[in-house]
């Protein structure tokens, strides 16, 4: 049985919090359409590399090209699109 988009979203947010060791942010507080970079989360370029590693290790998604990376890592929604398109 495949997981719903919301279930995948929550799992993804948990990975984001774990990989980036976000201390006072709970997974469910991250909005699906919220920009991950340049917004309230305060993420930077090192975080984008951490997220690329997360996508590789947890979802087997390999991002080689930084430009492509920026589009995919825009928000939880855009990462979800990528995860769902790979399956």
């Amino acid at each position: 049985m495949s997981k719903s988009r919301e279930e995948i979203a929550l799992e993804l947010k948990q990975h984001i919090v774990t990989y980036l060791n976000l201390l006072d942010i709970k997974p469910e507080e991250i909005k699906n359409d919220e920009p991950l970079f340049g917004g309230d989360l305060g993420l930077d370029s090192i975080d984008s590399v951490e997220l690329i590693v997360m996508l590789d290790r947890e979802y087997g998604i390999k991002i080689k090209n930084p430009t492509e990376g920026r589009t995919i890592l825009n928000s939880v929604d855009s990462i979800l699109d990528k995860i769902q398109s790979e399956n």
Partner: peptide, 10 residues
């Protein structure tokens, strides 16, 4: 030596 997270390195 695969895809590694840079934070520990920095």
């Amino acid at each position: 030596e695969g895809v590694l997270t840079p934070t520990n390195f920095v």
